[in-house]
Design a protein around this nucleic acid. Structure first.
Lengths: 218, 218, 218, 218
DNA sequence: AATGAATGAGGATTCATTCAT
DNA sequence: AATGAATGAATCCTCATTCAT
C-alpha cells in the first residue's frame, strides 16, 4: 500500500486547543453553557466529539479554559497600556474605556454573561473571575482615579468605591450586545451604537469627575 | 384512634401559583434556569413534582411566569411613585435609585441575570423583557432627566442616551449580588454594601448632571 | 338555611355506569385503550375524574365492563333470533349477517379492534372474549351450517372449520370502519358501503367463485 | 493479563437498524405500540436505550420503520410472483393465499393488528397503510379475479368488491394468531392450523355454500 | 491522533390513582 | 355522592462521557 503519502490526519496538536476554545465560546455565547451541547462545539470546531476529550477533560474544564484563555490576554494588554502612557488622565481614561467598548463587540464580550449565569454552579470559576479579572480590573480603574487626583485632573473620590461605576456601563453594554440586542426593535439598537454611546458615557462621567472651574466644593 | 393524623396534603388552589413562582425564582437564582431541576422547585415549594404541572404547562412557562409576575408589579410601583412626586428632581432621582437598590437585594434582583443568560434560548421572553421592562424603565429615567432639565435642576443631556447610564450601576449591583458576591472575599463585599454604594453612585452621577457655574446644591 | 331545595348533586346512581361505559367506549375507540386518558373519559361522560372511581375500581375494570356490557346483549339477541326463525337457511344466514353488518356501524363495532389490540396485556379479557364471544358466535354459525345441511339447503362442509369464514368479512369490515376508513381516500370508502358489501359477500359465500356447470341455482 | 476481556460492545452500524426493527416488532407484537417500553425494545435488541436514538428519531419513527420495512418487501414479492405465473387461476389463487397464510405465521403477521390499533393516533401511518399496502393488495386480488374471468375459470363477479372477501380470512387468521390464540383453549387452536384452514378456505371460496346441481367439479 | 458508535444516568413530562374537601 | 387538587411511579428522550475501531 504505497498510496499513503497524505497522512490520515493533520498533525495540528498546537492549534487545536485554541480553535476548540474559540468554537466553544461561539456556542456558549449563543445558548449559554448549560444548554450548549458538546456536539455543537465539536461541529463548529470541525472535529469530532471524541477529539474534544483529547484536549479537555470534560465540559467544565473546557468552560474554564474558555474563560481563562480569552480574558487574561485582554486584561494584561490593558494593564500594560496604562503603565506606559503619559497622556492626561481624562484622555487616558477615555482611551481605556474605548478599548473596552471595542472588546465588548468581539466574542470575548460574552464572557461576563456566561460567568454570571454559571457562577452558582462553578464556584471556583466564580472565584477565579472575582480575583483575577474583577479585582485586577477594579485596581486598574482605581489607579487611574488616583493618578488623576494626584495630577489635579480629577476631584477627590474614593477610588475603590468609584471604580465599579466606571465599569458599569461597559458591563451593561456587553449584556445588551450579547443577550438582548438580537431581540430588540431597531430603534433600541441605536442607543448603544459605538462612538455615540462612548461619547455620552464619557461626558456624563467626566463632568462628574473634573474639578469645578470656580469655588471649592464638598 | 384519635383523628389527629395530619393529612398528607392540603388543598390550596389559590396560594399555590405564587408559592411555586417564589420557589422557582429561588432555585433558578441559584443554579440558572437550564441547570435547575423541577424536582428541586417542587421540593422547595413543598409540593410534588406533578403538582407543578397543574399550574404551569412546562418548565418554560414557569420561567415566563416567574419573570412576568415578579417584575411587572415592581415596575408599576415605580412608575406610580414618579407620577405623583413634587420633590426636587435630584432628590427624586436618588429616591428612585434607592428603591431600585433595595429591590436588587431581594430575589427579584436575580431576574436580570436569568433573562440575560437565557435570552438566546427564549426569544419571546427576551422580547418581552426588552419591550415591557427595559423600554419602560428607560422611559422612566428619560422622563426624570427631562423633568430635571425643565426645572433647571439638570444640565442638558440627551435623555434617551443618558438613561441607560443611570441604570448601569443598578444592573452591575444586581449581577454582583446574585452571582459573584457569594464567592467573593470579604473585602470585596464591602464595596457594594447598600447606602455606601448608593451615596457614591449618587455623588458621581449628580455632579455630572447638575448645572455648572455656581450656587449651593442640595 | 332553607334554600336547600335543590340537592347539590343529582342522584343518578342507576344510570351512571352505563353512561360512563358509553363514554369510555367512545374514547377507547378513537385512541385505543392504552393511549386513552381517564380525564377524557370523565369529560365525555360529563363527570369528574374522581367519580369514575366510585363506579369502577380502575382503568382495567372499566375496560372489561365496556367489553362485557356492550357485547353480551348483542350476542344474546342474535342467539334468540336464530332459535325462533323458520325461514330458509340461506335467507336466515343473510339476515344474521345483515344484523352483524348493522352492528358494526355502531360504536360496538370497535370492540374487536380494542380486544385484539390489548389481548396481550389483559389475558383474562382475552380469555373472556374467546370463550364468551367468539366461541358462542362460532357455535351460532356452525348451527346455521348444520341446519342448512340437514334441510338440504347447503352442501356438506365441516361446520366448525367453515364458521370463521362466515365471520371473517364482518371482522374485516369492523376494522375498516373503526380504524382505517377515516384515513382512506373517498374512492376506497365506497367498497364497504352497507348493502352493496353485504350483497357481494352473500353472493360469494353462497355461490363461490367457480362457474356453475349448468342448470338452475338456489 | 490476557487480552481476552471481551469488549463491552461492538460497533455494528450496518446491522443495527434491522436488528432494532426486528426487536421492536417482537415487543410491539406482544404489548401493542402504546404499552411497549423502549427499554424493552433495547434490551431485546441487545443494546442500550440511548443507542435506539442513534438510529430512530423517536418511538413513533421506530414504529413507522417497523411497518414500512417489514411489509413492503413481502408485498413486492407477492406482486412479482403473480406476474410471472402461467398456472390456472384457481391454483394460482390458492398459491397466493398459501403464501399469505405462511406469512401470517411469522412476526410480520402482527403488523395489521398494530396498524389497526394505532391508526387513530398516527394518521399518516394509517394513510400509508391504506395506500401502499391495502390498495396494492386489493389490486393484486382484483387482477387475479379478472384473470380468472378472462380465462373462463371464474364466474363474473365485481373484482373490486370481491377482493376484500378473499383477504378477509387472512386478516382474521392474523388477528387470531397474534392476539387471541395464546389465550385460547387447545380445541380452538386446531381450527386455524395451517393447511386445514387453507383447504377449508379455498373450498368455500371456490364453491360456495350452495349445493351443486350436478356434475363433477374442478 | 482521531473518530463516532455506544452507553446510561438524569431530567421533563404524563397520567392512573388517592384523598381532603 | 361528587369533586378535582395532589401525588408519584413510569417512561420518553437527551447528552456528557467512554471506548472499540
Amino acid at each position: 500500500m504505497a498510496k499513503s503519502k497524505k497522512p490520515r490526519w493533520q498533525r495540528r496538536k498546537e492549534d487545536r486547543p485554541a480553535e476548540i476554545v474559540a468554537a466553544a465560546l461561539d456556542v456558549f455565547r449563543a445558548r449559554g453553557f448549560a444548554a450548549s451541547r458538546l456536539d455543537d462545539v465539536a461541529a463548529r470546531a470541525g472535529i469530532s466529539k471524541g477529539t474534544l476529550y483529547l484536549y479537555f477533560r470534560n465540559k467544565e474544564e473546557l468552560f474554564k479554559a474558555v474563560v481563562r484563555e480569552t480574558l487574561l490576554p485582554n486584561l494584561m494588554l490593558a494593564e500594560a497600556r496604562l503603565q506606559e502612557s503619559t497622556a492626561p488622565t481624562p484622555a487616558l481614561l477615555l482611551e481605556v474605556l474605548g478599548a473596552l467598548v471595542a472588546a465588548v463587540g468581539t466574542p470575548v464580550g460574552a464572557i461576563p454573561k456566561l460567568i454570571i449565569a454559571e457562577a452558582g454552579n462553578f464556584p471556583d470559576l466564580a472565584r477565579f473571575y472575582v480575583e483575577e479579572v474583577i479585582a485586577r480590573g477594579m485596581a486598574l480603574f482605581a489607579r487611574l482615579l488616583i493618578r488623576g487626583r494626584e495630577r489635579g485632573e480629577f476631584r477627590a473620590v474614593d477610588p475603590l468605591t468609584a471604580a465599579p461605576m466606571l465599569a458599569a456601563p461597559i458591563l451593561l453594554m456587553s449584556m445588551w450586545k450579547h443577550a438582548l440586542e438580537p431581540h430588540a426593535p431597531p430603534r433600541a439598537k441605536a442607543v448603544f451604537d459605538g462612538p455615540r454611546f462612548l461619547a455620552a458615557y464619557g461626558d456624563l462621567l467626566l463632568h462628574g469627575l473634573l474639578p469645578r472651574p470656580s469655588g471649592p466644593r464638598e
